[in-house]
């Protein structure tokens, strides 16, 4: 097997005296969808933030074989690492359009930007209708659509999504997971964090189950779906 696109080894993250991530290791290979699942407070978001270098950490983080622990976080987008954060990270003081343009902030070639934006509008027609509106007036679901669209305009090679389905109506949740699959079929590598473990495991090639800052279990998405322990703890099967 080829080398992983993203390889995290023995990652440790502290918030002051609190040790939120206690030595997590995982790998993401090109073309995979990999999920991190786990209860609230398990350390999923913290792990993603450390990968994007928003938080200092111990351990190794290799992107395409290169250690990025010393890389300035704003430069990671140049390496194709794009992160749609928990809470969506929308600039509520700007318009929808400005938010989308910020996705392409560092891009050098902008000639396809318009057609890429149109592709986003095909996915989420609502965004086109609200293009000139202040992003602060968007509903939670619309903000999530904006966050995902904006991340796509950053031209990710590895896309990090932290709870993309949070707070969305069931129909939109379905749509988001379909989009994840479509993007993946087009070759995009995706690192996903989800509360909706069932949906996440269905679309994931592999997944890691986190528990209080450690990897409890890992395996193929399907295998974990069928695992009675997982079913009881995360899928509500009794």
């Amino acid at each position: 097997m080829s080398a992983p696109v993203l390889s995290v080894k023995n990652l440790k993250v502290n918030y002051g005296a609190i040790e939120a991530v206690k030595g997590i290791s995982f790998e993401v290979f090109a073309g995979e969808v990999v999920s991190l699942i786990g209860a609230n407070g398990a350390g999923k978001t913290t792990t993603l933030r450390a990968v994007s270098r928003l938080l200092p950490s111990e351990g190794e983080i290799l992107l395409n074989g290169k250690d990025i622990t010393g890389t300035a976080p704003h430069k990671l987008i140049d390496e194709g690492l794009v992160h749609s954060p928990e809470g969506r990270g929308i600039f509520l003081n700007m318009t929808v359009e400005e938010n989308l343009k910020l996705g392409a902030f560092r891009r050098k070639d902008l000639k396809d930007l318009e057609s890429e934006m149109n592709a986003c509008f095909d996915m989420f027609p609502r965004l086109k209708e609200r293009l000139r509106a202040s992003a602060g007036t968007l509903s939670g679901g619309e903000q999530q659509m904006l966050s995902i669209s904006r991340a796509l305009l950053s031209k990710p090679k590895v896309l990090i999504l932290d709870e993309p389905s949070l707070g969305l109506a069931p129909r939109i949740v379905q749509q988001i997971f379909q989009i994840i699959q479509t993007l993946n079929k087009q070759g995009m590598t995706i690192l996903l964090v989800e509360q909706n473990a069932r949906m996440a495991l269905k679309v994931s090639h592999r997944a890691y189950v986190l528990e209080t800052g450690k990897v409890r279990l890992s395996g193929e998405g399907r295998a974990l779906l069928a695992n009675p322990e997982i079913q009881a703890a995360y899928l509500g099967v009794t």
Binding site: L54, P73, H74, L92, L102
Partner: peptide
């Protein structure tokens, strides 16, 4: 608006 979100935009 936000250092963190701005950083994620590069």
């Amino acid at each position: 608006f936000s250092f963190r979100s701005a950083t994620l935009m590069g």
